[in-house]
Write a protein that binds this DNA or RNA. Structure first.
Length: 347
RNA sequence: UGGGGCGUCGGCAAGCGGUAAGCCAUCAGGUUUUGGUCCUGACAUUCGGGGGUUCGAAUCCUCCCGCCCCAG
């Protein structure tokens, strides 16, 4: 049994490698170059190579940037162009780390994969082994893994399950390890300077300016492109009003941005596609916990599953679901039942 | 050019003789493996302009300028 540890160059995945080594697993380390060739390739690969040498683990660097372009970046750009708000990180996990990268590792002889995500795999009675929220709730990343197929998750290891974020550097130091990329991975990895708007512009042909209106059609200003805004957004509207205004909707057909006060933001449900089911929906509890944004408290609701779509009805006021974002479904005690991508809100 | 009203930060808007609230917008930080949200901080020595009254005015008087409304 050989486990491939996906190492990004950051501290978390390096710690995952060290912890598994400590536990005596048979390991290999794999790094996928997701971005086009550049100076970082050598730097990161060399850094990881020497770190792996310290631990006596074989290291492989793989060129996966074309797959990343097709499977993550292109959908990201297309999504924005179409008026959605895509979540590239949530796609990267099933398609790249637990997809293409794992496939490549298998060819190198691996039977399982491990990453530095802050989540757990736990035995949950009738459901079997389930993906569960990380112990450190503030760093929990199960939301981003809710689209990874269950059969892949059952071959996955998450050594950071019980680790607290602030201990990571100390533990690494104890192992004599230094991450090649000391900076915390955050924002969108393929977008320079955290400027997604500049990135999209550079990709060309984004839709242009149009009106900003209230829900009743009153024009209150102009926007410079729907793709610069997203549901629930407050800043950047440039509209001076008596109270803060938030984006309610984007009407792609008329290129209109619809805004309104905070209390008009809640909606009672949504429909999701590209569904990933961890267990048969027939066995789900009647009331599940639904999370439609990364940093959002999951709220109770009912679900119907039919023809590959999940239909959600919230039981409590719920921030406006945003097309393109992930919806993750949990049990009361934090096990992931499934996930999908929001296609449309229900009013 | 007869009558009435108004002119305070980029947008609203308090103040009505005692030495410029607040909100929105904007900017700068913080939080954050998506976009957002959220939190903190900054933001009119000055009240359309001139003159006057007063110990002291955005607040009173006066003239001018600019808007708006009603009558022509």
């Amino acid at each position: 049994m050989t486990v491939a540890v996906a190492v990004s160059g950051g501290m978390d995945s390096l710690l995952a490698l060290a912890l598994l080594k400590e536990q005596g697993h048979d390991l290999m380390a794999v790094h996928g170059h997701f971005l086009p060739p550049g100076p970082d390739w050598e730097r990161v690969a060399a850094g990881l190579d020497s770190a792996c040498a310290v631990l006596n683990v074989p290291f492989h660097a793989l060129d996966l940037y074309r797959a990343f372009e097709d499977r993550v970046i292109a959908p990201f750009v297309d999504g924005y162009r179409a008026g959605a708000t895509p979540n590239p990180c949530a796609l990267c996990n099933p398609r790249m780390k637990f997809g293409v990268l794992f496939d490549a590792a298998r060819e190198l002889g691996a039977d399982g994969i491990a990453t530095g995500h802050y989540v757990r795999m736990e035995d949950r009675g009738e459901f079997g082994r389930m993906l569960v929220r990380g112990a450190d709730r503030s760093k929990d990343q199960s939301y981003f893994l809710s689209l990874v197929p269950p059969e892949i998750l059952r071959q996955s290891y998450f050594p950071l399950a019980g680790i607290c974020k602030r201990d990571v550097l100390d533990i690494l130091k104890r192992h004599g390890l230094t991450p090649p990329l000391p900076k915390e991975s955050q924002e969108i990895c393929f977008v320079p300077d955290d400027d997604y708007q500049a990135f999209l512009l550079a990709r060309g042909s984004m839709p242009g300016k149009g009106p900003i209106t209230l829900a009743d059609g009153t024009v209150v200003g102009d926007h410079e492109g729907l793709w610069r805004h997203t549901q629930g957004q407050r800043r950047g509207l440039g509209v001076a009003w008596k109270e803060p205004l938030y984006v309610l909707d984007k009407d792609v057909a008329s290129n209109t941005l619809i805004v309104g006060p905070k209390d008009e933001l809640d909606l009672p449900g949504c429909v999701a596609g590209q569904v990933n089911l961890m267990v048969d929906p027939g066995s789900w509890p009647e009331v599940v916990m639904i999370q439609t944004r990364y940093r959002q408290q999951a709220g109770p609701g009912r679900v119907e599953y039919s023809e590959g779509k999940l239909l959600f009805r919230f039981l409590e006021p719920h921030g406006r679901p945003t097309p393109g974002q992930v919806v993750a479904v949990y049990t009361e005690d934090g096990a992931v039942l499934g996930g999908g991508i929001i296609e449309m809100p229900l009013g």
